[in-house]
Design a protein around this nucleic acid. Structure first.
Length: 940
RNA sequence: GCCCGGAUGGUGGAAUGGUAGACACGAAGGACUUAAAAUCCUUUGGCUUCACGGCUGUGCGGGUUCAAGUCCCGCUUCGGGUACCA
């Protein structure tokens, strides 16, 4: 019986006052607009604390709103997280799924410098565009919680956190942040005696010393301990851009942007004592569910190395210095020492005779950036004139200066063991210094032996030990004899937190006698002032130097602004309680939402944002302000969507273009062509002529009447003309198709090229699904009881989809949906009992069509609040199994047998089969393997 | 250099050690149509055979196993990250 549902149109479309009639064909455009409006008007995606339901927090890495808008690669991760959010909600979780904008950044400011357009204006426009694009895709974001890092009510809390960092130090024994006031108390009673505080520089003083110091002197000392501190640091300074640049913004001594010269300069900069948290950042990795490769990247970045700090006396002077080594076992092989050119020791150890040489060398190296030094591996160096004494063997060894040693790591000085370190080896060969092999049988005539295995020789008391034994014994010896101490070093550096830029958070800092003081918290937010130009002042101060009245109570305010990562370090907490003007997040909201259950974003943030936000979060945790030590419990990196470029071939010196397979007959130039005027690699020649004026008169040499383009996978970028805009896809196919296709492209975590051509497949799938509901203008849906085949198809799909969502294998879910619909189509199934669970199942992936179908089936509530179907295994039971019968592993034929048949009977039946006899060729099988329900293998 | 990923048809990709190529795209052929679009049906890894079928096949070379795309060893190659970190 076919039954046409008589639905309550008035109720169904109560939010439309027009005569909206049923859509009989799959009109995605109307359907999507309709439901997007419905969701908005019904606050479907509003999330609130609900202690009766378990929470689930799904977060996307929020975007920087660039002027170019979103391309088709950007939403990939957003779609994935959206699917998971919707899935969790269907399972009864209270889902928090917010979105916002990382709104401060260089591009808007560069644009401002060029055009005079205020970055706030540009940013606002860009955000509006992003929002419009995102809304078209049908995400379930709770837009009421939107944040923008450039808004005062947001950066209020960035500034606030900075003040807390200024007011705390890191206790190395407790391994947590403590109020700076307790450090002051300790100084007052016993000076630095017994304090365990992470610091920039080891200093010692008594309580009396402390008390004798002026206010300014005390403040200067406290900067040595504060978690947010001001210190003189070596930076890449670009005077033309008027700012410090990060290492990756500099190449070959010039700025990447603009090609302006960059010099090394020591500047007083704000920094965050991230390195104090190194051990905890490392340990925390064991508690979170991130990919191994990402954890590995962070481990390497943190770079923990255990070793020893060894004291070396200088020959003929009452002076010693320390080096850090992880290879204390190689102490007998030290044939020279090397100091970093920037090391304080250089001055001390350069002899009068060598002074001129050393100064020349230092001037030469100063000109080069760290990056250049790395790129250019020529061995350079100069002898200091001094000698050190080996603390173990007592031998005299020359002290050199070379830029292959970094001032910022360890002590800025090393003991060189050329036989067992390739860098020391290169240096020794170049300057003809001795090389002493320390491991039996190793050959150091051509290269060093860096491996940590073998038996020690030429090493006094370490002889005969293995390398690992020798390392342990040497460390023991060093500690015992007081020659040094066992030490752990980290590669992780403190984060430079100042930018000489306009478009960033102002520091809540003013200066008195050159010393920084924090604004009172009641004065926050300190709003970004207006300036006449977004350029440095005549005096070379940052742009804020132009702001009129940039001071408090007559004291000047800080002129630097905060860097990009400031606003993104705690944003996940703010989403929990976005409108709170009393705190970053209320304890109540934080206790409920706790931390991010699922975070999806790109790998490019592995060592930046993901380290800084973990640090920032741990700091707030230490203060007892939040309840979770790690911000992101599970993290998934979506792969990059690459572009798929198309090419045309122009015959040299003509305006004639030759098709791909004929191009070798001519001398041609390969040119990129806009992928949007190419379909299945066939060029639309009319559109091509209208594309660029130069091609107006283009001629074509075709093959079978078509112009075939070449193609290649490249980065998606404007200059390659391979950018695809999601708006165009939504316009042509709808958001549901876009969502499904992005997922269908391949595994979420893998990089893959975007090729719009495949999209017809998923669009056809949706139309086919629709056709299960409607034929022409008739609703086909019936209330008949489903058959076992139909139930099997449905439950098989439920099982697969559930498994795939849990495993983020969305590409195979889309396939599973296709298989399901194909089967239902073949079965001519129009039964509500099947179609309703299917529409719920599909809702996370294609929410608009699912919502429409769900309502067509007579439901009046949103599909978002339905219950996710559960697989009933009973429907999946098969009565028979098709056994592949194989001989020596090669499958020869199939044999259908009852599922309940015993292993022995399967074997008997298979052996008795006449085809088996044929393949046995009269031989007796050596072995017969029967895997029940799977396969039979006969070995002959 | 080091670390992490990949490598499967013309293309994107699928496959708890158990029928390699699911699902799609493209292509070819057909149906419907005045035509086009849309839709539907068939074929589609390679070689071979009139056909049944056979051989071969997951970057390369070995190995483990009754059975390997999958596990182990040694390479090639392409991406990504990172780098004088002592």
């Amino acid at each position: 019986m076919h039954l046409i549902f008589s639905q309550n149109k008035a109720l169904h479309f109560q939010f439309f006052n027009t005569n909206f009639h049923y859509i009989m064909e799959y009109n995605f455009s109307d359907i999507e607009k309709k439901w997007q409006l419905y969701w908005k008007e019904n606050n479907t995606y509003k999330s609130e604390i609900d202690k009766l339901r378990p929470k689930y927090y799904v977060l996307d890495m929020f975007p920087y709103p660039s002027g170019a808008g979103l391309h088709v690669g950007h939403p990939l991760g957003y779609i994935a997280s959206d699917i998971f959010s919707r899935y969790k909600r269907l399972q009864g979780f209270n889902v928090l799924h917010p979105m916002g904008y990382d709104a401060y950044g260089l591009p808007a400011e560069q644009y401002a410098i060029q055009t005079g357009q205020h970055p706030a204006v540009t940013t606002k426009i860009n955000i509006a565009r992003y929002r419009e694009q995102l809304e078209k895709i049908g995400f379930c974001y709770d837009w009421d919680r939107e944040i923008r890092t450039c808004e005062p009510d947001y950066y209020h809390w960035t500034q606030w956190a900075f003040i807390q960092m200024f007011n705390h130090y890191f206790d190395t024994k407790l391994q947590k942040a403590q109020p700076i006031s307790s450090l002051v108390k300790a100084f007052e009673t016993s000076g630095t005696e017994g304090i365990r505080a992470n610091c920039t520089e080891e200093i010692c003083f008594s309580a009396a010393d402390w008390k004798a110091k002026s206010e300014k002197g005390q403040q200067e000392i406290l900067l040595n301990y504060r978690i947010a501190y001001l210190a003189d640091l070596k930076v890449n300074w670009c005077s033309a851009l008027g700012t410090v640049l990060a290492n990756d913004e500099v190449s070959e001594g010039v700025s990447v942007r603009g090609g302006h010269p960059v010099e090394q300069r020591v500047m007083r900069q704000w920094s965050l004592r991230v390195s104090a948290y190194a051990q905890r950042l490392l340990d925390g990795l064991n508690t979170i569910d991130w990919t191994e490769s990402l954890k590995e990247t962070q481990k390497n970045w943190i770079g923990r190395s255990e070793g020893a700090e060894l004291k070396f006396n200088v020959k003929g002077q009452d002076f010693n210095f320390e080096v850090f080594t992880t290879r204390a076992d190689t102490i007998y092989g030290v044939t020279f020492m090397v100091l970093a050119p920037e090391s304080e020791l250089v001055k001390q150890l350069t002899t009068t005779e060598q002074k001129a040489n050393v100064e020349n060398y230092i001037t030469a190296t100063k000109k080069r950036t760290e990056r250049e030094r790395i790129a250019d591996r020529r061995v350079t160096g100069v002898f200091s004139g001094s000698y050190a004494l080996n603390p173990v063997s007592g031998t005299t060894i020359p002290i050199w200066i070379s830029d292959y040693v970094l001032a910022g790591y360890g002590t800025g000085a090393i003991m060189a063991v050329p036989a067992h370190d390739s860098r020391d080896y290169a240096f020794a060969k170049h300057f003809n210094l001795p090389i002493i092999p320390l491991i039996e049988g190793c050959d150091v005539s051509e290269e060093s032996f860096d491996a940590k295995d073998g038996i020690m020789e030429n090493s006094g008391f370490l002889n005969g030990l293995s390398v690992n034994e020798a390392i342990a014994k040497a460390k023991e010896y060093i500690a015992e004899k007081g020659l040094g101490r066992v030490k752990v070093n980290f590669r992780l550096r403190d984060a430079i937190f100042s930018r000489q830029r306009y478009w960033g958070e102002p520091f809540p800092v003013y200066y008195k006698e050159g010393m920084p003081y924090m604004l009172d918290e009641s004065k926050l937010p300190l709003e970004l002032p207006e300036v006449d130009k977004f350029l440095p002042t005549e005096k070379g101060e940052p742009p804020l130097g132009r702001a009129i009245g940039w001071e408090v109570d007559g004291f000047p305010l800080e002129l630097n602004t905060m860097p990009g990562f400031a606003g993104s370090s705690a944003y996940y907490l703010r989403y929990m309680d976005q409108k709170n003007d009393k705190a970053l997040v209320s304890p109540e909201a934080n206790q409920y939402w706790r931390n991010v259950d699922l975070y999806i974003g790109g790998t490019e943030h592995a060592t930046g944002h993901l380290i800084y936000s973990r640090f920032w979060n741990k700091f707030l945790f230490d203060l007892g302000l939040i309840c979770e030590e790690e911000p992101f419990k599970k993290l998934i990196n979506q792969g990059m969507i690459q572009g798929r470029s198309n090419f045309v071939y122009r015959i040299k010196d003509t305006n004639t273009f030759v098709s791909l397979n004929l191009k070798d007959q001519y001398e041609t130039t390969q040119l990129h062509v806009d992928v949007n005027i190419v379909s299945n690699d066939i060029l639309d020649t009319v559109k091509f002529r209208n594309w660029i004026p130069e091609y107006k008169t283009a001629e074509f040499i075709l093959e079978d009447g078509k112009y075939h383009c070449g193609w290649a996978v490249e980065k998606m970028s404007k200059s390659m003309y391979n950018v695809v805009n999601p708006d165009d896809i939504v316009e042509k196919y709808g958001a549901d198709t876009l969502r499904l296709y992005e997922m269908f492209l391949g595994p979420l975590e893998q990089s893959k090229p975007w090729d719009t051509n495949g999209i017809d497949g998923v669009h056809r799938f949706l139309k086919k699904l629709w056709s299960l509901f409607y034929k022409d203008d008739n609703l086909l849906v019936t209330n008949e009881l489903p058959s076992t085949d139909e139930l099997k198809t449905l439950h098989k799909t439920i099982k697969k989809i559930t498994f795939d969502i849990e495993n983020f294998s969305y590409n195979t879910s889309v396939s599973a949906f296709m298989i399901c619909v194909n089967e239902l189509f073949t079965l001519k199934c129009n039964k509500k009992a099947i179609l309703e669970p299917l529409s719920i199942l599909l809702a996370p992936f294609a929410p608009h069509i699912a919502e429409e179908l769900y309502h067509i089936l007579g439901n009046e509530e949103t599909v978002c609040d339905a219950q996710f179907p559960v697989c009933n295994e009973a429907y999946l039971l098969e009565s028979s199994v098709k056994y592949p019968i194989s001989f020596n592993g090669k499958v020869r034929f199939m044999l259908e047998l009852p599922a309940t048949m015993s292993k022995e009977d399967v074997e008997k039946t298979a052996m008795a089969n006449e085809q088996t006899l044929k393949y046995l060729e009269g031989k007796v099988p050596k072995k017969i393997i029967v895997v029940p329900g799977k396969i039979v293998n006969i070995v002959i």
